[in-house]
Design a protein around this nucleic acid. Structure first.
Length: 456
RNA sequence: GGCGACGUAGCCAAGUGGUUAAGGCGGAGGUCUGCAAAACCUCUAUUCAGGAGUUCGAAUCUCCUCGUCGCCUCCA
């Protein structure tokens, strides 16, 4: 398995790894609903995990919730409620939609507010080693003391100085120094610390939690490309300065960002589609397929048209999977070579678009083999394994209709069958056309008539 | 302004030095069907933003131009 490492700009091999693979994926700040950009990122890392586990690796997967920050405090003030209440509600919502997208749960979901002692311990250690300093209740990280600062984001302190603004009221030694601990303002949630009441700054929670749950050196650390700088840059600075070990992360993985209306989808820009809305428009498998049809490191533009195209593609996969073998079989179509090629594509830095192309080659071969009366069960098994690695649920939403609908449709089909036997085709076609009009697709074949709901 | 990524058919998207440039959606024609649908078959990029160069050979490497996006402030 080879994965692209943002830090080195080349590829890391996991083939000889025998120990469990530690994977830390940056989670959300739960101040508002998750959008499809989040979903895309977590679908990619979920697919990576599925493939690693399929390949025989054990994966320790940790994902955080940063459940204390300025925006949560602002949201709580707006709603007249507490930070905790909002965080709890949004985290529950997060799990609901991500579960529906068939994203496997991580082994641990640590929360910043529950890891304050670990955070304080880390900040204290950084102060002791002179990588941080207390400045009137706030604690800052001293970037000049960390020689590799800027390596991940491919920038230098000098280069950044130009555009940086120094907050006049704040006693930073260097404009790029960032806050580890923020002094509490009146009315804000706060915790006791050696530097007075306050709360952790953004960045430190991830360093503290990855150290606590996965150790000082981890295999994979992931997130969106917008986290490269400053978030992950700062994590490296904190973690390596604290532990004295390097590299903190063997492979930094960053997914391209989801775009909408020619710019990235983002909570702060307000140009977003929530996961909830996307699930209302389409279904989990289609949404996963939409993401996986583009390589994880490329940007992807979200559109309803794009989703609908994948919806029809999904029907092809399901169709091949649901085919029944013919009765008299003359030979066996195996399809194992397609599965091998699929895995090879996945091993090339998780090349899901290439793997998907191979999946469709297999779909065609299964259909063709069925037409030619070859046994297709083996081929279908290989296709099924591919869909499992892609995390498709293959749930048949077609039959997910209210109580009376199914027997009524079955009754109509029975009547229509009689008509067809009696060559009353105009009436039979009328039933079919009318059902199609209200969303039921009918397919006549040798064994009778199949029906399903039009998706989306 | 600094740094980074990218620009492949009507749309989406692989391919990153060498046989006919994957695959999906859409479109055209055909086979099958009572007719459809589904499936299958054929066709749908002499060409990879534009230009110059390196090479026996480039979509793939180098330089320049144009365009798009991201980061430099909160962000998956």
């Amino acid at each position: 398995m080879k994965l692209y490492n943002t830090l080195s700009g080349d590829v890391v091999s996991f083939d000889s790894t025998l120990e469990p693979i530690s994977m830390y994926v940056c989670g959300v700040t739960p101040y508002s609903s998750s959008h499809v950009g989040h979903a895309m990122s977590y679908v990619y890392f979920d697919t990576l995990r599925r493939f690693l586990e399929f390949s025989g690796f054990t994966v320790q997967h940790v994902q955080n919730f940063t459940d204390i920050d300025d925006k949560l405090i602002a949201a709580a003030n707006d709603e007249g409620t507490s930070v905790k209440e909002i965080a709890e509600r949004r985290i529950a919502e997060y799990f609901d939609v991500m579960d529906r997208l068939n994203i496997a749960r991580a082994n641990y979901y640590p929360r910043a507010t529950e890891e304050i002692p670990a955070i304080i311990e880390m900040i204290s250690g950084l102060i002791e080693k002179e990588y941080a300093y207390d400045s009137g209740g706030d604690v800052y990280y001293r970037v000049r003391n960390f020689s590799n600062y800027g390596r991940l984001g491919k920038r230098t302190l000098e280069g950044m100085n130009a555009g940086a603004r120094i907050d006049p009221g704040i006693n930073k030694e260097h404009p790029m120094d960032f806050v580890l601990w923020k002094e509490a303002k009146p009315g804000e949630p706060s915790w006791e610390s050696p530097w007075g009441n306050g709360r952790p700054g953004w960045h430190i929670e991830c360093s503290a939690m990855s150290l606590k749950y996965l150790g000082s050196k981890i295999d994979i650390h992931g997130g969106g490309q917008d986290l490269i700088f400053p978030h992950h840059e700062n994590e490296i600075a904190q973690s390596e300065a604290f532990s004295g070990e390097s590299p903190f992360v063997r492979c930094w993985m960053h997914n391209g960002l989801l775009e909408i209306h020619e710019s990235k989808m983002s909570k702060s820009l307000g140009n977003l589609v929530t996961v909830e809305e996307a699930l209302k428009f389409s279904n989990p498998d289609t949404i996963r397929l939409f993401f996986l049809s583009s390589h994880y490191r490329s940007p992807l533009a979200y559109s309803n048209e794009g989703i609908l195209a994948q919806d029809r593609a999904l029907d092809r996969i399901k169709g091949a999977l649901n085919l029944r073998n013919a009765d008299d079989l003359n030979s066996v179509f195996d399809g194992s070579e397609y599965f091998l090629r699929f895995c090879q594509a996945m091993q090339e830095d998780l090349n899901t678009p290439k793997a998907l192309g191979i999946m469709f080659d297999l779909v065609r071969e299964i259909n063709k083999s069925r037409d030619e009366n070859h046994s297709i069960n083996k081929g279908q098994e290989h296709l099924k394994k591919m869909t499992e690695i892609f995390g498709l649920t293959l749930e048949d939403e077609s039959k997910n209709v209210s109580g009376l609908t199914e027997p009524l449709v079955e009754l109509l089909l029975e009547i229509r069958k009689e008509m067809r036997v009696n060559k009353n085709f105009s009436m039979a076609d009328h039933i079919r056309d009318s059902l199609t009009e209200i969303g039921f697709i009918l397919e006549d074949n040798e064994s009778g008539t199949d029906w399903r709901l039009k998706s989306s």
